[in-house]
Design a protein around this nucleic acid. Structure first.
Lengths: 228, 228
DNA sequence: CGTCAAGTTGAGGTTCCTCAACGCGGGTGG
DNA sequence: CCACCCGCGTTGAGGAACCTCAACTTGACG
């Protein structure tokens, strides 16, 4: 599925994204009238773009959560990142996407043409700077993810919970939009190991499970010790 | 160790870097007179910059091989990349380096001030474009590295050999500049597992070991099958 | 020829995966 | 309204992959 001209949301609807600290530059970027950003809904589990499709658009999450992932020939899937409101995804340097993107829950998405963005960056230094900063942030996240993958299962789950607590909740209670399978594929573990580890963390009084997707961080320092 | 004004190599000495396909843009970048690139030697195992030091310089390998890495609090080390002649490293968006860099063998290194580079990119669209492309390449490599880390030991070692064969040799014979410990820390394995896996690959007639650092790829397709 | 770092090999242990059964909850149809 | 079903999650038992610890080998260099 590629974005069509039938943008079913008005810009005014999608412009009030949450835009957490740090990434607010990307919010401004999509708000620039010269880029002609449009909006569209993406329903749960629908594909936004696929690996090796032409990378003609760059996307921003307005609401909901998106996963980007790559699959190996034998079907193993690695989720390279979760993208929440305010996050930009799908920006590539090559002509084709190197990963796929799917909505985890019903989402609202904005998009701009990549060619428009690149052309604008030739004229506008500010846009060029934001593009570089965005790519640099992605690089940072990719490296953090690599570092995550050399840790033990306990440490990976703890790091994941801290990351999610920081990114999608202000309080200590986390509402996870993704399934155990998504978490497992992000952490390079199996769903059973993720489940067992969460149970263990609860046993250590580090967290409390309120239903499978609601988690309270009870003892953040216990998680932080596992994180670094 | 930070680069000093005492550039002990003339530009003419260091300008003839090998500059393999693709990354040749970076070569041109360091050749631009307005950037005032300078050169320096870096001897085997010496630090080029350290984690959380100010990221005042951007570097390019002229000759030799460099490792960049991060360490966890308990001493585990992850090598995020090996950098050979023509590769750029040490470019950060933040004020501080997020990894460390060391020369694996005696190297010649060029460097430019980051502030000079960023200032130049404001005036020169070509430089801005090269910076973005460079960062994008790094992003691609970081993601490939993440994907590597979810594979089995066999697959990781095979992928590593293919990567090295492609990057630092034209023939099928590879001369590895790095130790087993470096390889292990790059692949998220132990030296024993790396050693055993190489022995096994030799047993499967996929490779031939000529001394610990010289390897002949005997059956590339056997490695490629493990790679994707 | 001796020394020392680097690499290899072996034995045993730990972590995580695999396969399987069971539990829970939300939706649908009788 | 209840019963059933089905996807999702949890728990258990056993096995495979990789790690740890230790001994031995190799090769480079004085």
């Amino acid at each position: 599925m590629s974005p069509q001209a039938n943008s079913q949301l008005h810009q005014s609807d999608v412009a009030r994204s949450s835009g957490k600290s740090g990434m607010s530059e990307a919010v401004r970027l999509f708000g620039m009238p010269e880029l002609g950003a449009a909006g569209m809904p993406a329903e749960r589990n629908s594909e936004i773009y696929g690996e090796s499709e032409p990378a003609d658009y760059v996307y921003k999450v307005v609401s909901g959560t998106v996963r980007t992932y790559r699959v190996l020939s034998d079907g193993r899937r690695q989720i390279s990142g979760f993208h929440v409101a305010g996050d930009v995804f799908g920006f590539e340097l090559g002509a084709e996407h190197s990963d796929s993107a799917e909505a985890i829950v019903d989402c609202n998405i904005m998009f701009v043409r990549r060619s428009t963005l690149l052309a604008a960056s030739q004229r506008n230094h500010e846009i060029a700077r934001v593009l570089l900063t965005m790519t640099g942030h992605e690089l940072q996240r990719a490296r953090d993810h690599s570092l995550l993958l050399i840790k033990s299962a306990h440490e990976r789950v703890a790091s994941f919970l801290l990351e999610m607590a920081q990114r999608l909740s202000s309080k200590s209670e986390i509402e996870l939009p993704m399934s155990r399978q998504d978490i497992a594929d992000y952490l390079g573990l199996t769903i059973e190991t993720v489940s067992r580890t969460l149970t263990q963390l609860q046993g250590e009084a580090a967290i409390k499970l309120l239903g499978s997707r609601r988690i309270v961080v009870r003892n953040p320092s216990a998680l932080t010790e596992l994180d670094d």
